[in-house]
């Protein structure tokens, strides 16, 4: 790796980092794990004059669960922290699973979930499940200005987000899982487990009185940004989620997807895989609600 030259700053507080970002407006980038940013710099797609390393900001390094409010993932929580976190594994297993399907051991020990989102690759492994779970992200700017945004609205295009040039993502919030609900993540690549996802699907289902009460289906890598398959969702609500319904929903999701052909896969294959993975994710989520029957109470 041969990187372009830059000045490096390692602030110890978020406030300092925001001040630096405002001071070098447009000319600075913040970096958490660096696994995406440094590659873009090596390829000269980015050449910031100032690199602001966030790693020394201890206040951003946390994973916290509040029984009333839900899960908070700080900007410096690494993918491996999320994979290994006992509470996430117990209460949000699909989120842990999506993190475990991101890149390799080494990259998961370096990269962060927030960074995976801020990089805004259409195939970011952590986006579909988090969107399906109703996650919000907190963006903070100079003078401690803070705003919360639905993660669904955060992505504006490949590599582009709603982050203003002077803002930093402070944390990700995921609400408490509603009673009788479950999420699932399915992804596939043309080669191996460590390859970048060619298609991914995150779903979230809520069951009430044996029927599907709420459904969210989020597709990754088949549109410029992760997208909801709303018509496929609508087919599920009010049904008993039998095999035919799940199949029809998967096929509808495939019609809603807008995949391109690229080095990783053809658009035709991607569309077919959307149908397959959607059906599998729906089955997995629905079955895990059933197997937890009676075990989940409203929180």
């Amino acid at each position: 790796m041969s990187l372009p030259q830059f000045a490096y700053a390692a602030p110890k507080t978020l406030e300092e980092a925001l001040a630096l970002l405002a001071q070098h407006r447009g000319d600075a980038r913040v970096m958490a794990g660096g696994t995406d940013l440094l590659l873009k710099m090596e390829r000269r797609k980015l050449a910031p004059a100032v690199l602001i390393g966030l790693k020394r900001i201890d206040e951003l390094r946390y994973i916290r669960f509040e029984p009333e409010q839900g899960l908070f993932i700080g900007a410096l929580a690494r993918l491996s922290d999320v994979v290994e976190d006992a509470i996430i594994r117990a209460k949000y297993p699909a989120i842990a699973h999506a993190a475990s399907r991101t890149a390799t051991v080494q990259i998961r020990n370096m990269g962060t979930v927030a960074g995976n989102l801020c990089n805004s690759s259409p195939c970011a492994d952590n986006a579909p499940t988090l969107i399906a779970r109703g996650a919000k992200v907190e963006l903070v700017g100079a003078q401690a200005r803070s705003r919360w945004l639905d993660l669904e609205k955060f992505f504006t295009g490949p590599g582009a987000t709603a982050l203003a040039p002077d803002e930093i993502m402070r944390q990700i919030h995921v609400p408490c899982p509603p009673g009788g609900s479950a999420a699932a993540y399915q992804n596939i690549s043309a080669r191996s487990k460590v390859d970048i996802s060619a298609v991914s699907v995150g779903v979230h289902l809520t069951r009430r009185d044996g029927k599907c009460h709420d459904a969210r289906i989020v597709l990754g890598a088949v549109a410029p940004v992760p997208m909801r398959a709303r018509e496929a969702e609508a087919l599920l609500v009010g049904t008993g989620m039998d095999e035919d319904v799940m199949r029809a929903s998967g096929e509808m999701a495939a019609r809603e997807a807008r995949p391109i052909s690229d080095v990783r896969a053809s658009s035709e294959w991607r569309r077919e895989m959307v149908a397959v993975l959607t059906r599998r994710a729906l089955r997995q989520a629905w079955d895990s609600i059933a197997s937890a029957h009676g075990g989940i109470v409203n929180r």
Partner: peptide, 19 residues
């Protein structure tokens, strides 16, 4: 290029020395 940082395997080619 794998090395351990505080016991965890990382890619040293994607790690800034200063960090």
């Amino acid at each position: 290029c794998t090395v351990l940082l505080d016991g965890r395997a990382v890619a040293s080619c994607l790690t800034l020395a200063i960090e």
